[in-house]
Amino acid sequence: MNTIFALTGVVIKELYRRKDFYVLFFLTALITVGLGFVNFFNDDKIVRYLKEVCLLLIWISSLVIAIATAARQIPAERENRTIFPLLAKPVTRAQVIVGKFLGCWLACGLVLLVFYVFFGVIAGSREHHWPLLNYFQVLWLHWTMLAVVIAFVLFGSVVFAAPSSNTTISFVIVLGILFIGKYLGEVSTRQPEPVRTIVYTLYFLIPHLEWYDVRERLAFDQKLIPWGYVLLASVYAWFYSAFLLWATGLVFRRKPLNA
């Protein structure tokens, strides 16, 4: 585990020494605080809109950070050749994959924590209401969903030649799942064969990231999700992440180290 934790630490250091996070956080904060001072049409539901906008920005920022960070990890190791002194130590390629995954996931967890604390302070200062368990559930499910995204992007990083193509393809697929994933089952029933079977199979194969988007629980002050469902959703995400990491390991094992 020493090796994995050491790699994890490097990924986290890399994230906070780059400017991506600060830029995205600053933009989110600026837009949210700016909107907070504007009273559109004297609408008394302005706080709710503010919360929705802020949560949407947090989602976009977290996806940008998770995908961009994960996409560059292995290609950067190969291009900068830092993989050579690393693998010259008693380190396996599987440990590199797991270390990179954990590093990206923990780094994204820290980023989410900062964003949600900011969101909580803004929303709480307006509403004087602090539903901490709701915050925990929303943050936890969001973070768990990012585990699948990161594992998926890492897999893409050993399959696609260029990090930019991996980033673009990953964004399209992740956004596609988030927006239309839940409709695939319904869509399949209206299709002729063999499209029906293909779409229906796809519906069961894709990780349903949209399940983890529970922003409305905070935006509309809805009640808590049963904890059993949270646990099931977490196990589902961990299963997909583990599967994707395993696949990444299989491909990376045969990959030449030179980029």
């Binding site: 020493n2 090796t3 490097v10 250091k13 890399e14 020494r17 993989i83």
Partner: peptide, 23 residues
């Protein structure tokens, strides 16, 4: 290695600590 291939965003001390952890 023949050329230097290390994480440029780390300091010398951090690089050495990283490899020390691996061992």
């Amino acid at each position: 290695p023949e050329l230097t291939y290390y994480y440029k965003f780390l300091t010398a001390e951090e690089i050495l600590r990283f490899y020390a952890k691996i061992f």
